[in-house]
């Protein structure tokens, strides 16, 4: 049994030594290989420790057990994913972010309202809005609609703040230039301020991807039909089936990164001109 412990520790030492060496190189493949090897080390040490010390799977299941559950439960995991992500998180994300940007455009002509909205929005964005979940579940029922509502409330203010700041981001000189062309306010918005706001809007969109998933999952802790990632996590924790919980977390990690990655990719395509995207 101790062979597992020593074996994994040995692997760790070897992999770390290799990484220290490799990190001095500047080949492009090193940038991917080093973190990948590190991630593998963590999993191997985890597996080795769990097996070597015979850790109770109720406390910490081995990665191999999690992988087995993951593969075996794909239909359930997929159903939960559809319920929580595609129905709850994604629809709330789209509605909330659209509403945030539209509100920012609506108050665009009023510097007075902007001055008021920015601090209020920043304040609300720092509050524990997830706490609204029980109220919204009470209003919109146990279905995915209440999860979407939680997501809408969570993403609205961060999105609003970023969009308002973005619309103010264009340089004075460029606004003067628009003025010398006698451009209408609508033209100024379309041709100058909206494109200039895009990096800020995407910043908001990226922050909101994580918030959307958190909101949809946590809202399910307050009541949901018998599917959904949050529902599964809370019931399986109750049954001490931690391998299933971990499998859901793996799904959440994959979906979370993929969602973020998709938004980041769109950002790359749309704001290709921004210095942060050129380098």
């Amino acid at each position: 049994m101790m062979a597992w412990v020593f074996g994994s520790l040995l692997f760790w030492a070897a992999a770390w030594a290799l990484n220290v060496r490799l990190s001095r190189l500047s080949a492009p493949w090193v940038r991917f290989f080093v973190p990948a090897l590190f991630g593998m080390t963590v999993i191997i040490v985890w597996e080795g420790m769990v097996r070597g010390f015979g850790v109770n799977p109720v406390l910490l299941p081995a990665p191999s057990a999690i992988a087995a559950t993951f593969v075996g439960e794909i239909p359930t995991l997929w159903g939960d994913l559809v319920q929580t992500f595609f129905k709850g998180a994604l629809s709330g994300y789209v509605i909330g972010c659209t509403a945030g940007v539209l509100t920012a455009i609506a108050v665009d002509r009023s510097p007075f309202l902007q001055r008021g909205l920015l601090p209020v929005g920043n304040f609300v964005a720092a509050l524990p809005i997830v706490g609204m979940a029980p109220i919204l579940v009470m209003w919109f029922g146990f279905g995915w609609q209440s999860k979407a509502a939680v997501v809408v409330v969570m993403v609205f203010f961060p999105m609003l703040v970023n969009a308002v700041e973005g619309l103010r981001a264009s340089e004075t000189m460029q606004r003067d230039l628009m003025h010398t062309y006698a451009a209408t306010p609508g033209q100024g918005l379309r041709k100058l301020r909206l494109p200039a706001a895009m990096p800020f809007i995407f910043n908001g969109l990226k922050i909101c991807t994580t918030l959307a998933l958190i909101g949809a999952i946590v809202a399910e802790f307050f009541g949901s039909p018998i599917k959904g990632m949050g529902f599964r996590i809370s019931t399986e924790v109750g049954r001490l089936a931690l391998d299933m919980v971990w499998a859901e977390i793996v799904v959440a990690a994959i979906v979370g990164s993929a969602f973020y990655g998709a938004v980041a990719l769109a950002e790359r395509v749309i704001t290709f001109w921004h210095p942060s995207q050129r380098g």
């Binding site: 000189m173 460029q174 003067d176 230039l177 003025h179 010398t180 006698a182 494109p195």
Partner: peptide, 19 residues
């Protein structure tokens, strides 16, 4: 004159839109 687009203005920096 501005509204009848009587002049072109060149600023100290080029001020071109990067996008």
């Amino acid at each position: 004159a501005r509204r009848s687009r009587a002049y072109g203005y060149v600023f100290q920096a080029a001020g071109l839109y990067p996008w």
